[in-house]
């Protein structure tokens, strides 16, 4: 069987279908969505059909693996790259604070990621201020206060049940007045289909016109992660009153430390949305923030 396949005969669909199907199942079991897995495998089929296998030792499944690896790498390669530190320094040079808004559904890790980004920027010599615009969830303001104390940075807050957009606007104003380089704005979690809450988020984003609007998603989530991103982006467009709405610039993917080898969520998300993953969260400490390591993800997926 292998003799025939490893020879000089060009590969046919029949030769490829079984190993590709196996690959697709493996990807899906690791949390790659069915749509993304199918398309990746489609690409592999197109890549390999009609090709001749070079050396005798290289079996069909190896060829499929290699082709799949290439397809995955291509997918994860950022179309736009976002360097937060460089952008923040550029804003500083212009004499204005750099603003980042963190948005997302409940409990994904917005506030924690915000504190990690604060730690990262502060360690790179920037003056960072936190802005507590989750005025809804119990303990949300105290949560930011704890981070502010731990990290030695100021926090702007105006209490609970306040209009989040106004708090953000006032926070940015205070940051300007006190010579801050960066403002990190925390928002309340909300479900992507909760229209009133999505409207108020749109208002906050429109009023603050942040330099960076990041959506936080969990690596734990399944298909819903894509749904979250698509609907947040759509809401920011649909509910905006301006002709050029401020939409999502990229994402932070959290809780990578909790998923073992089921790292496929990153693939599904980038595949479906084309948004770059700016950072990944890999734990609950301030230092557990990294740039996306595409090689590693692909290696884990194909191991």
């Amino acid at each position: 069987f292998f003799q025939r396949l490893t020879g000089q005969k060009p590969l046919t669909r029949e030769d490829l279908s079984l190993p590709i199907e196996t690959m697709q199942k493996q990807l899906q079991a690791q949390n790659v969505s069915a749509v993304a897995a199918r398309e990746i495998c489609e690409a592999v089929m197109q890549d390999l059909e009609g090709q001749k296998l070079g050396s005798m030792t290289r079996g069909v499944s190896t060829a499929v693996r290699e082709s799949c690896e290439k397809a995955l790498q291509r997918l994860l390669a950022p179309k736009r790259s976002i360097d937060v530190l460089r952008e923040a320094r550029a804003a500083k040079a212009e004499g204005r604070p750099y603003t980042i808004v963190f948005i997302g559904v409940n409990g994904v890790g917005k506030s924690t990621s915000l504190s990690k980004v604060c730690y990262y920027l502060k360690n790179n010599g920037l003056k960072v201020m936190l802005c507590a615009c989750d005025t809804f969830r119990s303990g949300a303001i105290e949560q930011l206060k704890v981070h502010s104390k731990n990290l030695g940075v100021p926090v702007f807050e105006a209490g609970y049940n306040k209009d989040a957009a106004s708090v953000a606007v006032n926070g940015i104003k205070q940051a300007k007045d006190t010579g801050m380089d960066v403002v990190l704005i925390d928002t309340a979690g909300r479900m992507q289909n909760n229209e009133p809450l999505m409207r108020s988020l749109t208002k906050l984003v429109a009023k603050t016109k942040p330099d960076l609007c990041v959506q936080v998603v969990e690596a734990l989530a399944g298909n819903d992660a894509t749904d979250q991103l698509v609907h947040f982006d759509k809401a920011l467009k649909d509910f905006s009153e301006t002709t050029v709405p401020r939409t999502i610039d990229g994402m932070i993917m959290t809780k990578f430390d909790t998923i073992g080898d089921k790292v496929g969520g990153a693939i599904s998300l980038v595949h479906a949305t084309g948004q770059p993953i700016i950072f990944v969260g890999t734990g609950q400490k301030y230092t557990n923030i990294n740039k996306l390591n595409a090689k590693k993800i692909v290696r884990v997926l194909l191991q």
Partner: peptide, 9 residues
């Protein structure tokens, strides 16, 4: 358990 969780659950 969060209902959005995927394969890791």
């Amino acid at each position: 358990m969060d209902s959005t969780i995927g394969q890791a659950v």
